Simulated assay, not measured.
Amino acid sequence: MEAIVELSGVRKSYGVGTAVEAEVLHGIDLRLEPGEFVALVGPSGSGKSTLLNLIGLLERPTSGTLHIGGRDTTTLDEAELTGLRGRSIGFVFQFHHLLPGFSALENVLMPAIIERGVAGPDDLRRARELLARVGLAEAEHKRPSQLSGGMQQRVAVARALALSPRLILADEPTGNLDTRSANEIFELLLEFNRDTGAACLVVTHDPSLAARCQRRIEIVDGRVAN
């Protein structure tokens, strides 16, 4: 089976060619299969966020290869990377990054608008279905300021799934929530993982959440430790 994500010998340095060049990731090998739900753990400063940014095509590796859905991303230009990212990857962050001037429904429609320039009837239907699945069907016209933190993160989860991505990347998605809301968000991610077969990679500092994942990848000092 073709991996959703495959990294081979990936290194990432900052300040390349300067006197203060620093290598953050040191030869990462990693494979993520379709349908896997994986925790990415490690101490602060270990390179987790950098690794997530690389897999999310927000940054490029300094060396090594990174394949997403079988495509070698190191050969793609910026426009091609943007297109692949929009079609294949959904993001959920610790801070939801919803657009404050738009309704919950409009925020969920935003990936389709960015991808195609306009949201069509199918996009609208999909957005409403997702809001209903995260328990916010009655809140589609509310703006983020009218929603609780947990509700805002539910909208962010729905937005991440708007284009039916094959890969969901979640960076501390429950880190800013109370225990009950955190559990609800985690359950939503697990549910969508089971229902759609999308792979999910979750950065978390919560050992109880990491224990509920199928697999755990630990990063220590820029290297895979397990």
Rank of each mutant, 00 (worst) to 15 (best):
I28T: 05
P121L: 00
G222Q: 04
Q152Y: 02
G70Y: 12
D178E: 01
P100D: 07
A160G: 07
L177Q: 07
V108D: 01
R159Y: 00
H67S: 00
L81S: 02
E140G: 00
T62W: 04
G150C: 12
F95K: 12
G120Q: 06
A156C: 10
H26W: 07
P165W: 07
A158T: 01
P100Q: 09
E33A: 13
L30W: 13
R194T: 04
L147T: 03
L189W: 14
G69R: 14
Q153C: 01
A211Q: 10
T74V: 14
F186I: 09
I217G: 01
R180Q: 15
L167P: 03
T65Y: 00
L99Y: 15
A3H: 15
A139H: 15
T174P: 07
E59M: 05
G17E: 12
V108F: 09
G101C: 12
R11F: 06
L190W: 08
G86W: 02
G90D: 02
E218V: 14
G9Y: 07
L190Q: 14
C213L: 10
E138W: 06
R125F: 05
S148P: 10
S103G: 12
E21W: 08
A19P: 09
A112Q: 06
L163P: 00
G27R: 07
G17H: 07
F192V: 03
V92Y: 01
N53A: 11
D77P: 12
S145H: 10
V202K: 08
E6P: 06
T65C: 00
D77I: 06
G70R: 13
I114D: 01
G222H: 03
L81Y: 05
S63A: 13
L81N: 03
G90H: 09
R216G: 00
R11E: 07
N226K: 08
L105C: 09
V92R: 02
R166V: 13
V10Y: 04
A119R: 04
A132G: 10
V41K: 04
A104E: 02
H67T: 01
G120I: 13
S8V: 08
L25Q: 05
Q94D: 05
M1R: 15
L109K: 05
T18C: 02
T179K: 12
P173I: 10
T204P: 09
T18Q: 04
I219N: 03
R87S: 09
N176I: 06
A19V: 15
P111K: 10
L58H: 05
E138S: 12
L99F: 14
S13Y: 02
E191S: 11
I4H: 03
A79Q: 14
H67E: 01
P173D: 02
L57A: 14
L163M: 06
N226W: 03
F93H: 09
H96A: 14
I68R: 04
R143N: 01
F37Y: 12
V24R: 00
A162Y: 08
E59F: 06
V16R: 11
L25K: 03
